[in-house]
């Protein structure tokens, strides 16, 4: 098990390296003079330019710059955000937990929901039940999250007044302990639900296809020949085997979600990585944008690694392969 994880991790390193180098080259390709950008609408004195170029190694050859940049990334230095007057890493570290919270809560709902619907549709004895479930899931999946989010706000926040419309918490809160958690959960509920419905429907569609594929396997015939009940066949023989493709899709989607759900965070004013990305693009805060992209790439690569490990846990054939 550890060997699988280790081998995959070794493979992930060159991938990350490539991503960072490509991002650095993109950063360099952005038009404009960085020194001029720092100074603003003002002629740059030659002495000052020389000083800055010396300080930031702007005249070093490109390979040297890449190596320096890689060294900086490894030591956690993603540059400085002039718009926010803070190091980029600090900004991302502040935002990331909120995005991780939103993504985790959403997938904690989406995965069981999707699996349940997928198994129900895939094993439905009546074709009509399958068609109804599948069509509803497709319709729900086709609704964009930002619009679904707004619908949820209209119903649950504006009409019923049960939940707050946006944000991550109240401006002023005196709640402590459990009450504080409950208060935060109320803010989390709507964005997580919108996200979960969307992702859950995707997972449901994959699970259904996977369940139907599993139903056609020989070992299901064996299970029937053993005289097992329908429930036992689903629990012991279908769920685990059918969940393999689901793990791939859900893992990939989760990795993607860690990079920030841009539209959803905007709709709900959820101050996560996605909202930071939107603000940074609007303010041309290039260092922050690049930093977010690199961190998102790392998240996707790490999640793929996790998927590989989970895959090996679920399927013994992968553990012994090579």
């Amino acid at each position: 098990m550890l060997r699988v994880a280790g081998r995959r991790a070794v493979w992930a390193l060159p991938l990350l390296l490539t991503i960072i180098v490509v991002m650095f080259c993109l950063l360099r390709a952005i038009p404009g003079d960085p020194v001029q950008a720092m100074v603003g609408d003002f002629p740059v004195p030659p002495a000052y330019r020389a000083l800055i170029e010396e300080k930031y190694h702007l005249n070093d050859p490109l390979p040297t710059q890449i190596v320096t940049y890689l060294g900086n990334i490894v030591s956690g230095d993603f540059g400085y955000s002039y718009q926010n007057q803070r190091p980029v890493i600090g900004l991302i570290l502040e935002r990331a937990p909120r995005t991780i919270l939103l993504a985790s809560a959403s997938f904690a709902i989406a995965i069981p929901l999707g699996l349940l619907l997928g198994v129900l549709a895939g094993t439905a004895r009546r074709p009509l039940a399958d068609k109804l479930l599948t069509t509803s899931a497709l319709i729900a999946y086709a609704i964009p999250t930002f619009w679904l989010g707004q619908l949820l706000v209209i119903v649950f926040a504006l009409q019923l007044g049960w939940l707050p419309t946006q944000g991550i918490g109240p401006m002023i809160s005196r709640a402590h302990g459990f009450a504080w958690i409950l208060e935060r959960l109320r803010y989390l509920a709507l964005p997580a639900l919108a996200f979960a419905i969307h992702e859950g429907m995707r997972i449901a569609r994959i699970s259904r296809a996977s369940v139907i594929d599993t139903l056609g396997q020989g070992y299901i015939v064996t299970a029937r020949a053993k005289g097992l009940t329908r429930g036992a066949i689903i629990r012991r023989h279908i769920l685990r085997n059918a969940s393999l493709p689901v793990v791939t899709i859900a893992g990939y989607a989760f990795g993607h979600a860690l990079g920030g759900a841009v539209l959803l965070e905007t709709v709900f004013a959820w101050p996560g990585v996605g909202l930071l990305l939107v603000d940074s693009i609007r303010l041309r805060d290039n260092m922050t944008v690049i930093g977010i992209v690199i961190v998102s790439a790392i998240a996707v690569v790490v999640m793929n690694l996790v998927v590989d490990v989970v895959y090996a846990l679920l399927d013994p054939r992968i553990r012994t392969a090579r």
């Binding site: 015939v221 064996t222 679920l314 399927d315 013994p316």
Partner: peptide
Amino acid sequence: GFSMIFQDPLGYLNPTQ
């Protein structure tokens, strides 16, 4: 009662159990 065995035991055994 009765039971059955099949041609392809690899396909008819659950790979993850």
